[in-house]
Design a binder for these strands. Structure first.
Lengths: 232, 232
DNA sequence: CGGACCGTTGACTACATTCAATGCAGGTGG
DNA sequence: CCACCTGCATTGAATGTAGTCAACGGTCCG
């Protein structure tokens, strides 16, 4: 790894509360790798050899069972994934693929485990990371089980708008196909859902969305702090 | 708390890797409380004042949104719950109710946070606990999104049988109503699913089940190590 | 111009919820 | 001991939500 890359890695939030020596040790055996879009980074069931951290790009976490596939989450810059599997040397429960061309930091699993054992600050940072990840999945599970597809879409629109300045209009950060998977529905259903949102003054034109009446959309969505958003 | 109770608490797996002094400190302000069945122990959205550990009994984790309710998990003796919320002082994302009369250890949240900050061994134990909990929820999410109700039931039967000696017959540990909620279906659907399992030589009589042909049931269920069980 | 892919729409199917009616226990009180 | 109530489980019918299959239009790109 080049020294300017090393500098960049040190600034990753994940390493912030780690002793400099431990960061060195972890980065010594690490790779910073570029992946083109659509490439599969890890595969469900394989042993956890590396901790992956997204430096740049977007990664989709998904899983396949028999002839069905489902998206479990999407990770962006600064996010690590499959930390739980790496820490305790278990097989991955999820697969990951790059949605965009991405730069991924890959830290050997035993280096992570060693730092976890040696550095209490790192252990606490990991606990915090896992706690937030856990709460994220619980929210996703509630989102899936307690809401209809239309409600999930309405809430996604509101959340995404809020994360981008609440202007009421934005472009989709990925294909609608991917959005459908992320919301847990077939692409056709997403299409129909957009049509249904016309009644709530949501206008979709190609890759752009306009929310003309936030109040109406909120009334449909019933956003809830214990399901939506990352603040809690 | 009585001294014999203190002895019992010290043997909880959760406290095994904690310094004795820290355990003392946590237990000093803790309560060991009995709850009758059906009582709600914690409520979604409230601040996390206590870490709860099931000493005896069974607790259902659930959540309500608008007019819908869903079960997110069931905890038994030795399990702690809402650890993530307690650690970082966030509101509960789940509610909990006792399914059976239960004894619950309640440790003040700030005592837990203090021990987490002071004792690296405890911090690592918590990280491990959170990692396993995280993987459990991921499995539950996959179970929900990748399988039909009938498949979930078939797998639950196989898993539960395996956890009880693989004898091929057992009694339900809780009401069918609760099982239905746990599997994410209406009680009526569970009823119909049992009827459908007749074709696979599963015989249900009141509270008892007999799996007469494990091979046939497995062929329907397609059990999978990255969804089922607690071993991985 | 032709091909590939995405998104949309329609028709059909599968799975699950809801509502309603019934049967079957266990528990209470006359 | 029996009548009665309550709550759970089962069954039927109707509804609703989402997945599947197929066809079509548009756009990007060779």
């Amino acid at each position: 790894m080049r020294s300017q890359d090393l500098e960049e890695m040190r600034r990753i939030p994940f390493f912030r509360s780690v002793e400099p020596g431990q960061v060195e040790a972890m980065l010594r055996g690490a790779f910073l790798q570029r992946f083109p879009a659509h490439v599969e980074l890890i595969h469900t069931g394989e042993p956890a050899d590396f901790l992956h951290v997204v430096v740049e790009g977007t990664v989709e976490m998904f899983s396949v069972h028999r002839d069905r596939e489902t998206t479990l989450g999407v990770s962006g810059p600064g996010d690590s994934f499959i930390l739980a599997a790496v820490l305790f040397d278990r097989p991955y429960l999820q697969s990951a693929r790059a949605l965009l061309a991405s730069r991924i930091l890959m830290v050997p699993a035993d280096a992570v485990r060693q730092a976890f054992a040696a550095d209490a600050g790192f252990a606490r940072a990991i606990a915090e990371n896992l706690a937030l990840a856990y709460r994220g999945v619980i929210k996703e599970l509630k989102n899936q089980k307690l809401r209809s597809g239309l409600e999930r879409l309405a809430n996604w629109l509101l959340t995404h708008d809020a994360e981008n300045g609440s202007t009421g209009h934005f472009d989709f950060p990925f294909d609608k196909k991917v959005l459908a998977a992320r919301l847990g529905m077939a692409p056709e259903v997403l299409s129909r859902s957009f049509a249904a949102l016309g009644a709530y003054h949501v206008v979709v034109h190609g890759p752009s969305v306009v929310i003309q009446d936030v109040a109406a959309l909120r009334k449909l969505a019933h956003p809830c702090s214990t399901i939506d958003g990352t603040s809690l």
